[in-house]
Amino acid sequence: MEKIATREAYGKALAQLGEERADVVVLDADLAKSTKTIDFAKRFPERFFDMGVAEANMVGTAAGFAAAGKIPFCSTFAVFAAGRAFDQIRQSVANTRLNVKIAATHAGLTVGEDGSSHQSVEDIALMRSLPNMTVFVPADAVEVYGAVRAAVNINGPVYIRLGRSAVPILHDQGFSFTPGKAVKLRSGNDAAVIACGIMVAEA
């Protein structure tokens, strides 16, 4: 079974989106090679902003872009996006319902190589607690493409949770991503198993 990291798919989807939408800008916190926003940066350097190791400033800048009519995608590791910049997301993005998209990579426990300081296990709980915030946790590369396209069409804040490691592709290319809709992958009569993100393949 083919495997692709959801962060890899994000980079490609974002670069495609840049071809179609001149109002999309991308901000990163000095992690473009890891978050894969480097794909967008190479193609559209005039719309890419490396904010350095300053996640709170990145989110505040993104709020300014959104207030000026742009559609900013912010990227960093999930532990920094949801943790370090939580106050700025809460006050400057969620409460004001600004059109900021936060795509956080290296989420969950699978970043074992980076140590426990980088293992974000609370980011979904933090983001879903915010007003006006839509949360997407794609299970594979195909869902990532759908999530990025859905995010740009939602007028308001969106959090997209992405992983570091390669995961199996579960859907064919004809899959239609619908926000808020569960997808049944297998039928049975003994139990209901519900999962999101990288745990879908495991489940």
Results as ranks from 00 to 15, higher is better:
I154S: 11
L170Y: 03
N155P: 12
M127P: 12
I71C: 14
A56F: 09
A78N: 09
R186S: 12
V144P: 05
F77P: 01
Q88P: 03
A150S: 14
G156E: 10
T76K: 07
A63D: 13
Q173S: 15
P179I: 02
N95M: 14
A62S: 15
L170T: 12
Y10I: 02
A62M: 10
D50P: 14
K181H: 00
A195Y: 05
Q91S: 15
R128F: 00
G156T: 09
D50H: 11
G112S: 03
A104C: 09
E143I: 06
F48L: 06
I194K: 03
D30P: 09
E8W: 06
N95K: 15
A81R: 09
T35H: 13
M1C: 15
A182N: 07
K33N: 08
S120H: 11
G112W: 01
V25Y: 02
A66V: 01
V137N: 00
L185Y: 05
I4R: 08
C74D: 09
E122N: 10
A203S: 15
N95A: 13
R128K: 06
A141W: 10
P72E: 02
E55I: 03
P131W: 00
D123V: 07
V79W: 08
P179G: 03
R128N: 05
E19S: 13
L130T: 09
A103H: 04
D140C: 05
A191W: 01
A151S: 02
I154E: 13
G115L: 15
A85H: 01
K3V: 09
A107N: 03
E122D: 15
H106N: 11
A139R: 07
T76H: 07
R90M: 01
M127T: 07
G163F: 00
A195H: 01
H118C: 06
V200S: 01
V24R: 02
Y145L: 13
R164I: 13
I71V: 14
G108W: 06
A151N: 04
